[in-house]
Amino acid sequence: MEQILANGVYLGSQYAMIALGLTLIFALMNVLNFAHGQMYVIGGFVTYTFYGQWGVPFVLALVMSCVTLAILGALIERYLFAPVIKGSAREESTMLLAAGIAFLLDALILIIFGEKQRGVPKIVDGVFNYDFRLIMPYDRILICILAILSIVAFIGLMQYTKTGRALRALAQDRTAAQLMGVNVDRYSMIGFALGAMLAGLVGGLLVTITGVNLGMGGPTSIKAFMMVMIGGAGVISGAIWGGIILGFMEAIGLAVLSQYGDITYLLIFISLMIFLAIRPQGLMGKPWG
C-alpha cells in the first residue's frame, strides 16, 4: 500500500505538471494544442543536450529548457496561432494548425536529435528502501518535490502577480478583459509561452528519470488531454486534480491488476467514458464552458 501511494503521488505530480501547460493554453485561447507532447519532448532534449552532453549544471540546463520552450511557444503563438485565430472563426482551423505543428516538431526532433532513446546521468544517487515495503530512488523523490514546488510557484504566479491576474481575466472573458485595458495580443503570447515553458520544464525534469525519445510526444499529449478532460478543460485546479487522479489510477491499477495483463488503461478509458457521459464538463469545469 505504501508503494502504491508513493507511486501515485510521484505519477500524479508529474502528470499534473504536464496537464497544466495544456489547460492554460486552452483556457486563454481556446486552442487544443496537439503539439504539447512534442514541446515536452523538446524540453527533455534541451536538458539532455546541456546537462547530459555538455556537462552544464542540471539547474542551468533546466532553465535553458524553460527559456527555449518559452521562446518557441511565443513564436508559435505570434506567427502561427494568432494570425489563424484572427483570420478564421472555425475552431478546427487551430486544431489542424496544432496537429501540423506537432508533425513539424516531430520531424525537426528527428533531424536535430536523432531517433535514439536518450538519457542523462542521475542527479542524485541512491534508493530509499523502507523494509522493501516502500522503495523509491532519491532522484524520483527530488523530481517529485521539484514538480510540486513548480506547481505551487505557478499557482502563486497566477494568483498574485499582475501577469497572472491578466491571464486569468483573459481566460474568464476575453472581450471583458480587453475592455478593461488588458493587452489581449500580448498576454495571449505570454500565456502560450508560459504553457510551452511548463511543457519544457516537465520535459527537462523527467528526462532524468525516464529519458527522452522521438516518439514520446504523441502519447504524452494523449495523457495530457485525458487529465484535462477529467479535471475540466481550461481550469487550472482541474488539470492538477486530473493529473493526480490519473496518477493514482495508474499506480493502483498497475499494482492490483498486473496479473490480468495490461488492463489498467483499458479500465481507465472505460471509467473516463462513463464519467464524461455523466459529467461532460469534467470535475471542475463549468457546463457553459
Binding site: 507511486n7 524520483r140 502519447p219 504524452t220 495508474e250 498497475l254 499494482a255 498486473s258 490480468y260 488503461y265
Partner: peptide, 16 residues
Amino acid sequence: NVTYQVDTTDFTPVLT
C-alpha cells in the same frame, strides 16, 4: 502476465 503500455515511460510501478 505483467505487460505494459507501449508508451510507458516510468516502469517502477509496472515492475514492482
